[in-house]
Structure formats: C-alpha cells, structure tokens
C-alpha cells in the first residue's frame, strides 16, 4: 500500500538557519499523526514542506506515491488533494463564510454554483457553523473562523489534511470546539498530520506522536508511549515543561 505521506531525508534552511536537518517520516492512510515539540523545532516548516508552501533544500516528499518535490509535478493538482488549516485561519476577509467555502470549489474544481453551495452548506453544518453562512470572517469568533477554515478545506474532498497549530491563536474557551471537529474527522478516518501543543488531544486522538527538537525527529511512536512513557531524555524534559509548567 502506498503511504499517504512519505518524507525522506528532508532538509530546509533559511539562509544560514538550518530548520530541518534530515527528517524521515511516513503517514499511512487513515492515520492521525501529531507532531509536538518546542517552538522553533521546525514542526511548522515540516508541515509546510508537505504541500510545498516551503521548498525543501534537500530530500524528497511523496504524497500518495507522487513525488511532490519533483520540479515537473503539477503542484496545484497535488495541493487540491491536501487540505491545510492554518494557525491564523487565513479566511478570505472579503467573502462570507459560504463564499469562502465555495470559491475554490467553483474556480478550482469547476463545480456548478448549486452543487458548490450545497457542499459548502453541508460542510459548514458539519463543523457547527451552519448558521453563519452569510457572515463575514471579521464578525466571527476565532473558533468559528477556524471551523469555517476547516469546512473550506473539507469541501475540496481532500485525501489528507494538514493542521498547523490550529488552536494556538484561539482564546482557551474556544479551543474545545475546534478540537471536537478534528476529533470527529479523525473518527471518520481522515488522514491527518497535526502540529499541535494540545497534549490531551494528541494522547487521545493520535495514532502516532512525533517529537521534534532542533530540526530532527527525536522520538516517533504510539501516543501512549511518546507522551506516556518517553524513552528519550529530550522528550521527557519537554513533556515535563509542557505538562507541569509550574514545576
């Protein structure tokens, strides 16, 4: 079976700053993999290399068996199959929630207006903001905006989803709604690669947890093992800081 995502010896530098220093990682179809680690460890960069928002300096990335790092690949076609959810939501502020979810269906997938609208409403309903169709993003709470962003990605029927710290910009009381939607997606069998600081979510939902530090994968295994019984000293230190911040 082809891997959903396969990353081999991935390097990425920004100038002299080596952010990723040889990452190897695979995600199987239907798996939920959470990437954890201190800020600056390269988690987001790793995620952004999967759909080529960042161009890797060295190494290969395969999505469903297609090498996306091949310069001749049709990137737009690859990205169509990969949903992406950003920390800052990045909704289009000049369009209503409904239009946000419809626009790429119309312009990229060339779906008809009524079909696109039906799919948009269905997905907005699914993430619990079905009553906000005609609202502009500026009038929505952060949690609602992020759920519209998830609906926007889902409407494209992606084969896999990337989440880049989806709850980090939210007020604490709004985090739960977004995590609930993600949990539902996971239960439906969506392939997900999630960069997160939500240890509870990772422990409960992830099939695998990857701990990154200093641009390398330090530990990769089942959630219960990496979070519950880490083998590496760096993982232990990180988890101590995150789970018991008061010391």
């Amino acid at each position: 079976m082809t891997h959903a995502i396969e990353i081999a010896d991935l390097h990425k530098s920004f100038g002299d700053n080596q952010v990723l220093q040889g990452i190897d990682l695979t995600v199987e179809p239907g798996q939920v993999v959470c990437v954890i680690g201190p800020s600056g460890s390269g988690k987001s960069t790793l995620l952004r290399c999967v759909n080529l928002l960042e161009t890797p300096t060295k190494g290969k990335v395969f999505v469903e068996g297609v090498e996306v790092t091949d310069p001749d690949v049709d990137l737009d076609a690859v990205r169509r199959r990969i949903g992406m959810v950003f920390q800052q939501f990045n909704l289009f502020p000049h369009m209503t929630a409904l239009q946000n979810v419809m626009i790429a269906q119309r312009r990229v997938l060339k779906r008809g207006r009524s079909e696109a609208e039906a799919i948009a409403r269905e997905n907005l309903e699914k993430v619990g903001v079905g009553d906000k169709c005609d609202t502009l993003p500026g009038q929505l709470s952060g949690g609602q905006q992020q759920r519209v962003a998830i609906a926007r990605a889902l409407a494209m029927n992606p084969d896999l989803m990337l989440f880049d710290e989806p709850t980090s910009a939210l007020d604490p009381e709004l985090v739960g709604d977004v995590l609930a939607v993600m949990r539902k997606l996971a239960e439906e069998g969506m392939t997900m690669l999630v960069v997160t600081h939500e240890m509870g979510f990772a422990r409960e939902v992830a099939d695998r947890v990857v701990f990154m530090d200093g641009g390398v994968v330090v530990e990769d295994g089942p959630a219960s093992q990496v979070i519950g019984d880490p083998s590496q000293e760096r993982t232990k230190a990180f988890l101590r800081r995150v789970l018991h911040p008061e010391g």
Partner: peptide
C-alpha cells in the same frame, strides 16, 4: 497578508487565480 496567498494556493489555486480572486 502572505497567509492569504498561502491559503489560496493550498486550495489548489494557481498563482494567477489567487491574485485575481
């Protein structure tokens, strides 16, 4: 914001399409 282009591109829009829409 740069995130607007990134969101549009990650939905599969071409560079031109992202600019226009």
């Amino acid at each position: 914001p740069k995130g607007q282009t990134e969101a549009a591109r990650s939905l599969g829009m071409s560079a031109t399409r992202a600019q226009v829409t």
